[in-house]
Deep mutational scan, measured.
Amino acid sequence: NQASVVANQLIPINTALTLVMMRSEVVTPVGIPAEDIPRLVSMQVSRAVPLGTTLMPDMVKGYA
């Protein structure tokens, strides 16, 4: 089972991601792979992401 990136806190719209905002977790459906966490740092979210939400490619500007 592949771990995905999950929000560790509420991430407001247009916030630049930092390591403390993200954790890896095995979830369904699968989201952005956990190994991409270093690449996500400083990228902005395109919408508010609630705590515990799996990050999907369309939620991060410039990821897809």
Rank of each mutant, 00 (worst) to 15 (best):
L51K: 13
M56G: 05
L51Y: 11
P38D: 11
K61Q: 12
N8Y: 04
T28Y: 14
A48C: 05
D58N: 15
P12F: 06
R23G: 07
V6A: 03
N8Q: 13
Q9H: 07
A16V: 10
L17Q: 00
I13C: 04
N8F: 05
D58Y: 08
V6K: 04
V60M: 04
I32H: 01
A7E: 00
A16P: 14
A3P: 13
S42H: 08
A3S: 14
T15C: 03
V5L: 04
M43E: 04
M22C: 03
L17S: 00
G31Q: 02
N14R: 05
I37A: 12
N14D: 14
I11G: 00
L40I: 06
Q2L: 15
A3G: 13
V27C: 04
L17D: 00
Y63R: 03
T53K: 07
V20Q: 10
V27Y: 03
D36R: 07
I32W: 02
L55D: 01
A48M: 11
M59I: 08
L19H: 13
D36T: 07
A64F: 09
I11D: 00
G62V: 04
I13F: 08
R23Q: 07
P33G: 06
A16M: 14
V5F: 02
Y63F: 15
M22S: 00
G52V: 01
R39T: 15
A16T: 08
I37V: 09
P12Y: 07
L55F: 12
T15G: 05
V60S: 01
M22H: 00
M21H: 08
T53Q: 13
V20K: 09
P12Q: 06
P57L: 05
N8D: 13
I37H: 03
M56H: 10
P29I: 05
K61C: 04
N14I: 03
P50H: 11
V5R: 01
N1T: 13
V5C: 04
N8E: 08
M43K: 15
Q44L: 12
P57H: 08
R47A: 08
V5H: 00
V30W: 11
Y63G: 04
G62T: 06
A34P: 08
V20R: 13
N14C: 03
S46H: 13
Q9I: 09
P50I: 07
S24P: 12
I13P: 10
N8M: 07
T15I: 09
R47Y: 08
M56R: 15
R39G: 07
N14T: 05
M22V: 08
P57A: 09
L40Y: 02
T18S: 12
I32C: 03
L10S: 13
T15M: 09
S42E: 12
D58P: 06
M59H: 10
A16H: 10
S4G: 05
T28L: 10
S24V: 11
P38R: 10
G31T: 01
E35Q: 15
V49E: 02
V45T: 15
V49K: 00
T53C: 04
P29C: 04
L55K: 00
T18G: 04
I32S: 01
V20N: 14
P12V: 06
A48S: 14
V6Y: 02
G52P: 02
I32R: 00
I11K: 00
P50C: 04
R47N: 12
T54D: 00
R47V: 15
A48K: 14
V20L: 15
I32V: 08
L19A: 15
M21Y: 05
T54N: 02
V45Q: 00
A7N: 01
M59L: 06
N14V: 03
Q9M: 14
K61I: 11
P12C: 04
G62I: 03
R39M: 10
G62P: 04
N1L: 09
R39I: 11
V26Q: 13
K61S: 10
M43D: 03
V26R: 11
L55E: 00
S46L: 13
T15P: 01
S24M: 07
M22I: 11
S42A: 15
T54V: 08
R47G: 06
I32P: 00
R23F: 05
V30I: 13
S42F: 07
Y63N: 04
A3N: 10
R23P: 02
T18Y: 03
P38T: 13
E35R: 15
R23C: 04
Q44W: 07
P50N: 12
Q9K: 12
K61H: 15
Q2D: 13
N8R: 08
P29Q: 05
Q9N: 07
A7G: 03
E35K: 06
Q2P: 15
D58A: 13
K61P: 12
Q44Y: 12
L17Y: 01
P50R: 10
D58G: 11
P29F: 04
V30L: 11
P57C: 04
P38N: 13
I13Q: 14
Q44T: 13
M43R: 11
Y63E: 03
S24T: 14
V41A: 08
P57D: 07
M59T: 08
N14E: 10
T53E: 14
M56P: 01
L55Q: 00
S24Q: 12
V20S: 15
E25M: 14
I32Y: 00
V5D: 01
G31V: 02
I13S: 13
T28R: 07
T28V: 12
P38L: 11
V41G: 02
T28D: 12
M21K: 03
D58R: 07
P12G: 09
M21E: 02
N8S: 12
T18F: 03
I13D: 11
T18I: 05
V41Y: 05
T15K: 06
V6N: 01
P33I: 08
S46K: 15
V20M: 15
V6G: 01
S42T: 10
V27H: 05
T54C: 03
R39P: 02
Q2V: 10
E25H: 08
V45F: 00
G52R: 04
S24H: 13
V41W: 03
L10I: 09
R23T: 08
G62S: 08
A48V: 14
R39V: 09
A64N: 15
I37S: 04
M21Q: 06
L55T: 00
M21T: 03
L55H: 00
L51A: 14
T18Q: 14
P33K: 09
I11S: 01
V45G: 01
D58S: 10
P12T: 11
I11F: 02
Q2F: 10
T15S: 13
V20W: 08
S46Q: 12
T54R: 03
N8T: 14
I37N: 01
A48Q: 13
M59Y: 10
E25Q: 12
L55A: 01
G31M: 03
P33V: 10
K61N: 08
P57T: 07
L10G: 11
G62F: 09
S4P: 00
N14M: 09
T53P: 01
L19K: 09
M59G: 03
V41L: 09
M21A: 06
L40Q: 00
